[in-house]
């Protein structure tokens, strides 16, 4: 179990912002070890575990998308899977023209961002529980729309294997797909790590803590939240392209609330840090899919127990690194 759980595939830099326990070299050492373990995974475990690990990475990207909203802007989203599905359908659609993975990734990111920008006009008017309701409603609408109008209907669509770089053969073996997804996740992770260090991210935290104060400092908080929502939608769209690379299949069921809830739960387990959100996503996928196979179908039981445990254990002790106790408004 540890082989799949310990790697934290996002650069260690994300956690340095708020950690106070480990010395900086210790942290980079842990990160380098994790990265090495994550890279060596295809040579260590069987194909089934490898494909699960790739799924876990997709969830980690989706969890980062949710974390940008809940951990930074203080708004808990319950519909991020909608933008994942938008990204996945986009990637599947352009797969008929090109099977080049990075191109699909860019197109899916753009589509997720555009979808989030349009729907976000509604979402960012709400705060707290209302925001949760609105994003849930938007997610269900996308689910219904995909059933109705998307190619393939409720059956979903299949996509050919993706090509990592021009000239390379299509990736069929799970090990190569996993390494491609790992590389993409790292790139997205670096981009997110830069994003959360900008002044924009600081202002988002200010809005989460006291919105009128940020307004009085001369910032249009509505536009900033819409920008954050759009960025989160873009990240979720990128996760959709990675999902296509892993499963080569997308169906409206991927927009179901369960996926969004899993992403939100992973973000909340991550207690305000991007590394934590990724670790939470990997943990949840492992509990749901991998340990469930070992326990003979008791995955949901394990998931439920894990949620209770994670909620009641002090988070700083769990994460070991993060020291912040965010006061969320939701």
């Amino acid at each position: 179990m540890t082989t799949t759980l310990t790697p934290t595939p996002v650069p260690t830099g994300t956690s340095t912002r708020r950690c106070g326990r480990l010395p900086s070299w210790g942290l980079s050492a842990v990160g380098a070890l994790g990265l090495a373990a994550a890279g060596a995974l295809p040579w260590l475990v069987n194909a089934y575990v490898i494909s699960l690990a790739a799924t876990a990475l997709v969830m980690a990207v989706l969890a980062m998308s949710a974390q940008l909203l809940v951990g930074w802007a203080g708004l808990a989203p319950l519909g991020q899977a909608a933008y994942l599905v938008v990204g996945a359908y986009t990637a599947a659609s352009i797969a008929t023209a090109t099977s080049l993975g990075p191109l699909q990734l860019l197109a899916a990111t753009a589509a997720g961002a555009v979808a989030a920008a349009v729907t976000g006009l509604l979402a960012v008017r709400a705060r707290g529980t209302t925001f949760l309701m609105v994003t849930f409603g938007l997610g269900e609408l996308v689910h219904a729309a995909a059933n109705q109008w998307a190619p393939g209907g409720s059956e979903g669509v299949h996509a050919p294997p993706v090509v990592a770089l021009p000239g390379l053969p299509p990736m069929v073996r799970p090990g190569w797909v996993y390494l491609y997804v790992l590389a993409c996740t790292l790139v997205i992770g670096v981009a997110v790590a830069i994003l959360v260090r900008t002044r924009f991210a600081l202002l988002l935290r200010g809005i989460a803590a006291h919105e009128p104060r940020v307004q009085a400092a001369g910032h249009h908080t509505g536009w900033m939240l819409l920008a954050a929502y759009t960025l989160a939608g873009g990240i979720a769209g990128a996760a959709g392209a990675l999902a296509i690379a892993v499963t080569r299949y997308v169906s409206p069921a991927d927009a179901a609330m369960g996926i969004s809830a899993l992403a939100l739960a992973a973000a909340l387990i991550g207690s305000g840090s991007m590394t934590g959100a990724c670790a939470g996503a990997i943990l949840l996928v492992a509990a749901r899919d991998w340990a469930s196979g070992l326990l003979g179908g008791h995955g949901p039981t394990l998931l439920g127990l894990a949620f209770l445990l994670l909620a009641y254990l002090p988070r700083h002790r769990l994460a070991g690194l993060t020291t912040r106790f965010p006061r969320r408004r939701t």
Binding site: R197, R199, L203, H210, V214
Partner: peptide, 29 residues
Amino acid sequence: WQHPALARPLTAVQNVLLAVPGQRLTAIR
């Protein structure tokens, strides 16, 4: 404000930086 209106999880200097004008949104530091 009549009662302090601050971003409580942020440090004092970060709170002040929220209001200093003329900064780019994309600035890392």
